[in-house]
Simulated assay, not measured.
Amino acid sequence: MASIVIAEDDRDIAELLKTVLSNAGHAVQTAPNGAAALDLIERTLPDLVILDHHMPGMSGLEVAGRLRAEVGTAAIPMIMLSAATPAAARQLFDVTITKPVRPKHLLEAATELLAAQDPHHGTAAQLSDVPRLLAVSDFLSRPAHVAGLDAFAERLAVLAKVPTGAITLMLNDSVVVAGSFGMPTWVREAGGVPAEWSPDAIVVAEDVPVLIVDSQASGEYADTPLFAVSGVRSYASVPLHSPEGHVVGTLCVMDERPGTCTEDTVQVLHSQRAAALSLLTPASQAPAGA
């Protein structure tokens, strides 16, 4: 859900646009003129601003100019609505839409601008890469030696000197726990967690290790159920590759105590990637020198 401010002096149009965007799950506020819009935007700092051009007192172009000139509001994405778009609008607005506005067109433009502001937008695209997903599906379709994977996860936790370890496979929207030790019961029963709950989404999408020394300090994942409900404070994860080089999952460890996962922990995980792959891949398909 995003916060959106619409400035439109025609009440019927304002209510129509508010309904369309509210039905899409956004929190929408309206302003009847440019001055009211400027005040509302500066007080609430919304995620998106939609400005009609021809408004009494202060035009949408003037409002946009004021917003772009202020550090606190300069980066807010803006859409202009106008029957005749002024040339200067293209220097201030991200998108210009000609009136009469088609609600579907406005919703599509708003969705695209908001997605571009989302730091996880690129992550989602990379997780949905088809060759990568086919490689993950290949692993998931093989009969799993669960006991062996769980024993591996236990060894991983022991080597890292933390209470919890796991080997995972990453789909486009979820982390599948292939083997685990010390994992919360609710995660084991569910078989995994949504991708947005786990730092493993970043590990897989960007093919980089992630180290969280203290989730309460970093803040990014502190409020997700994996951390908030389970009390995880320290976390380390490294990417796991298929024989063809696709990032299919991770090796990860975690602890309720802050500071137990360190750079040394990451190195331990790196050292176990070949062993993990050997449990997931038949010998005939194992990569040379993994």
Rank of each mutant, 00 (worst) to 15 (best):
V95Y: 04
A228F: 08
E62G: 00
L140I: 03
A276N: 01
I76W: 05
A125K: 15
R43T: 02
V162P: 01
E189W: 04
A178P: 01
S198A: 14
V266R: 10
G192Q: 09
H26D: 11
A69F: 02
V158S: 06
G57A: 06
T98R: 10
A151K: 09
H241S: 10
S3L: 09
D200V: 13
T111V: 00
M58W: 00
E154C: 13
V247Y: 04
V176F: 13
R132P: 08
D150W: 11
D129Q: 06
V238N: 05
V229A: 10
L107R: 13
A290G: 04
S82T: 08
A274K: 08
S284P: 00
T44G: 01
S198M: 09
S230F: 01
L279V: 07
V136Q: 05
R102K: 11
H105A: 12
L114Q: 05
R233D: 00
H53Q: 14
A222H: 10
V253R: 09
I50R: 02
I50C: 03
Q272Y: 05
H105S: 06
H121R: 14
V266D: 01
A195W: 08
H26L: 10
P100Y: 03
R90V: 02
T96F: 01
M1R: 11
L17V: 00
E196Y: 12
V63T: 04
T19Y: 08
L169H: 11
S174T: 11
A236C: 08
A124F: 12
A115Q: 06
S128H: 13
R68Y: 09
D138H: 14
L251R: 02
D207N: 12
V208K: 13
T262G: 10
P199G: 06
N172T: 12
M80P: 03
S180Q: 15
P163N: 11
Y221E: 01
P143D: 08
R66H: 14
L280M: 15
G148H: 03
A37Q: 05
D223I: 08
A64T: 02
T111W: 02
L171T: 15
L81Y: 04
V71L: 14
R257S: 11
A115I: 01
H246R: 09
T281K: 03
P163T: 08
L114G: 02
R273D: 07
P239R: 05
Q216E: 15
A36K: 03
L171I: 07
V213S: 13
E256P: 03
P184Q: 09
A195S: 14
H120C: 02
S234C: 12
I212L: 12
M254F: 15
P32H: 09
T19A: 14
E189Y: 02
M80I: 10
L280F: 07
E220Y: 11
I76P: 00
S174Q: 14
A288T: 07
A147I: 12
I6K: 03
D223N: 12
V204Y: 07
H121M: 06
L211N: 08
T98C: 03
L156V: 07
